[in-house]
Amino acid sequence: MIRVLLVAAFSLLLLAPALSPSDFYVNVATQILIAAIFALSLNLLVGYGGLISLGHAVYLGVSAYLTIWLVTRAGLSHLPAAVAAVVLTTAMSLLFGILALRATGLGFLMITLALGQILWGLAYRWVSVTGGDNGLSGFQRPQPFGIDLASPRTFYLMTVAVFACAFVLIAVLVRSTFGAGLRGVRDQPRRMQALGWHVWMVRLVAFVAAGFWGAVAGVLYAYYNQFVSPHVLALTNSAEALLMVIAGGAGTLLGPVVGAVVVVMLKNVVSAYVTRWVMLLGLVFVAIVAFMPEGLVPGIDRLRRRRRPAGTT
């Protein structure tokens, strides 16, 4: 009963922004959901796999570049371009996963960071393809079945649909046997190996799944902004996603969503007053990591549990 109520409340919360009279709030809500899908994808690696990636912007960024490039430069129509962007980006995540999983721990972090920075540099300098610093523009949202996605409300509802799919499928994945295996590999790789799990393969599958959902977020990003520039591949973007995961609570389903709400709201509020978002990002990073390493959702969970009288759990 409580679960049904929770799901209902969650759905209402998701649909409420569409009723807002101001486009501004609808757009902020759209940004939050795209960021939440992106953070959920990274959480598969960071939270459930124990693999801290600092190059996750690669999958969102490359997918966004491909979506726009394939339509505006290669002349594809929207649907095949979006599918190709997700397929190609997922294939790239397989390649990068094979490379990055040569190491775990800090080595993994540094390889993902180096790969991310290389693609960022490529987006900046390969001007004939990526448009360099100017990026790629001239992209318009499609009108599938006569539905006009150019309207912020319609686009928001589509984003809600994609988000709901992503959330449910990721929830199913982490609660499956594979999800249990992934958490096992995170905590006790040797024991899992002794139990007959292929540790490396479990990690690789998680890496590719994270790449896939990152690519989905990238397609939405491209549709939302109708523009892409090297900024999307910058380290700050990977770091923002990591902050969402850590601030919300790594390894929980709701954590990255809460993190996305907090970070995107903070970014929008701060940008309205000052231009120092990067500095604030750095300060929040230091503060969260140093003083609240477990994140908001587990922190609130713990508080709630403390309220209950001892012995009833």
Binding site: I52, L54, G105, L106, L109, L235, T236, A239, L242, I246, R276, V278, M279, L281, G282, L283, V284, F285, V286, V289, A290, P293
Partner: peptide, 24 residues
């Protein structure tokens, strides 16, 4: 030093400091 033994926290703090230095 405060984060001794928490490798990832240390690395993430240095990343935050990099952003602070860059923006300053």
């Amino acid at each position: 030093r405060r984060l001794a033994g928490r490798t990832f926290s240390q690395v993430l703090v240095t990343l935050g400091i990099a952003f602070i230095i860059a923006d300053s």
